[in-house]
Structures are given as C-alpha cells and as structure tokens.
Design a protein around this nucleic acid. Structure first.
Lengths: 144, 144
DNA sequence: AATTAATTTGCAACATTGTTGCAAATTAAT
DNA sequence: ATTAATTTGCAACAATGTTGCAAATTAATT
C-alpha cells in the first residue's frame, strides 16, 4: 500500500486526473476507501471520520466521485447504498465493473472480487442487457 | 388472472395458509402486487392506493409478507427497496428465488425473469456462497 | 507572490423515509 | 355473542437525503 505520504500523493494524482480540486475532504474520503478492505456506506464516513466533515459534503463528494468514475455503487436489498473504489479501467461515464460482489453474512463487509468474472446471462428473446450486477452472499475467507 | 372475485379468493387462501389474518390492507396490497407487472417499492403503494391506508401499515405489512415468504426483495443501487411476490416454492424462512431480475432503463420497471436461472459462480478459494443475486439492466421487451 | 476567478464547503432549513408506543378497531377463536 | 388475539392508525420521533447561499478554500492569472 505504501506510506501515508505516498498514498496522499497517489490520491492527488487521481484527483487531478479527474479534473477535480484537491481538497482535504476528498483526500480524507479516498484515504478511508483505501484503508478499508470493503465497501463503505454513507454512515461509515461519519463513524470513521467523526465530525471532521459535514454530512452534506460527504453526499456531494460521493456523488462527484461517482460522476467521475472513481467509485461505483454496489446493489443492496436494504436502503443503504454501498460504494467501492473502481479499478483503473473505469472512466467517466463508463464503468467497467465486470467483477462480482461478495457480502459476508458473518462480518457484514462487502468486497469486490476483482478476479471473479460476471458469467454470461442468456436473457429471454427481446431483452437487451447493458449491465449485469451480481452480489453473492455467504461466508468470506476470514470468517469461515 | 381471473375475475376480481377469484383473485380476492386466492389472496384469502394465501393469507390463511401463512397463518395471517385476512384484512383489507393485506388484500389490497397483494392485489396491487398481482395487478402490477413489475416489482413495487414503498412509495408505489401511496401512489397506487392513495391515502387508503397508513404509511406505517404499509411498512408493517411488507415486513410481515417478507417474514412469511410471500414477497422477496430485489437489490438496487439506490435507497429504494423493491419487492416482488414469490413463486410457490418460497416458504417461511426459506426463499428459493433462483431467478434473475431485470430492470429496464427505459420504462424503469423491474421484473422477475422466472425462467432465467442464476448461473453458477466460481468463487475464489475460501468463500462459501449461500445466495446469489443477479440484476440485469438494459432494455426490456416492451421498450425495445 | 499577490490578486482574481472558480470551485468547494458548511450551515440552516427543509423534504422524505423509516420507526416506536399505544389506544381503538378489526379479525379470529371460543 | 362474547372474549381473546391481532392489526391498524395516530402521534411523535429518528434517520436520511436535498437545496440555496454565503464564507472559505483551491486553482488560475497576472
């Protein structure tokens, strides 16, 4: 992962590449993503960072990162929205998240299984697929 | 689908089988599910049924139906929760929703593709799968 | 390096969504 | 028909998400 110094540097590059100002909030939020081994939801930022930034700023920052293809959403069956950082192939307006997501029922974390491809799906006649989301739930490596 | 009379009869049987009282609210909500060709979210009930029942009652009714295996949730990437009626194989505490879900980007409806199986997923070593959720988005038959 | 322009942030106020306790009403059981 | 059990609606609250706008920060310009 590199030193804290190096991470901050990498985040700076990432933000500038996305034509975004480099601000404390954005650095901090990306740091949280990189430290975490799983997906984060909105409430996690308040828990992890305390009151270091405003709720509204978090909403706006996450939306900005989504727009720029820096993070992506993971579907859930509850009202929370989970976010994870995209890999390099993602770009503005075009996400290439051809991986599946895994939610551990024991520890609760959701992770991207980057090396597990989404299988081809044979849809009924007349349907055109643009995107396939797969979320597997079960027990993860660390919890078994 | 049958006449309105027949539908009400079927709903009564369904509720009694689930050991639930047969009430106006429950009948009405199940009617809405059966009339609708897609999944419904909470706000739909207020739109479709107006003020005919209380918001709290809807929350509680949907929760009850979930508990009894009458309906199931469909994952989304937003804060809404979508529900659809289960097929007969579903029972209390055990859902067998081995079908995929399709969300049309044009008309916005989400449907169950009951005849499209969830493909097998090869997880990395150490992971155990209990449930696989697949949501495909694209253009549906009616919108193409 | 200082000034200006553009962007981002935080606050306040509000809108929406989900939850809980409890009394009244409805349904089921006797 | 009466009693018991369940369900509903209301009120009040908690949590979550949104918008406008002024102040602060960052980036661009001279």
């Amino acid at each position: 992962m590199g030193t804290k110094q190096q991470i901050t540097e990498r985040i700076g590059v990432l933000l500038r590449d996305s034509k975004l100002s480099v601000t404390d909030t954005r650095i901090k939020i990306l740091e949280l993503f990189m430290k975490s081994n799983g997906a984060l939801e909105h409430s996690d930022f308040e828990k992890l960072a305390g009151k270091s930034f405003d709720r509204v700023t978090v909403y706006r920052t996450l939306q900005t990162f989504l727009d720029k293809g820096i993070i992506h959403k993971i579907p859930t069956t509850d009202t929370s929205v989970r976010y994870a950082v995209c890999k390099s192939e993602c770009s503005e307006h075009h996400h290439h998240d051809h991986h599946i997501h895994f939610k551990c029922e024991t520890c609760g974390t959701t992770i991207c299984l980057d090396d597990t491809d989404v299988p081809p799906i044979q849809l009924p006649k007349g349907y055109a697929a643009h995107n396939v989301e797969v979320v597997v739930s079960g027990v993860c490596k660390s919890c078994k």
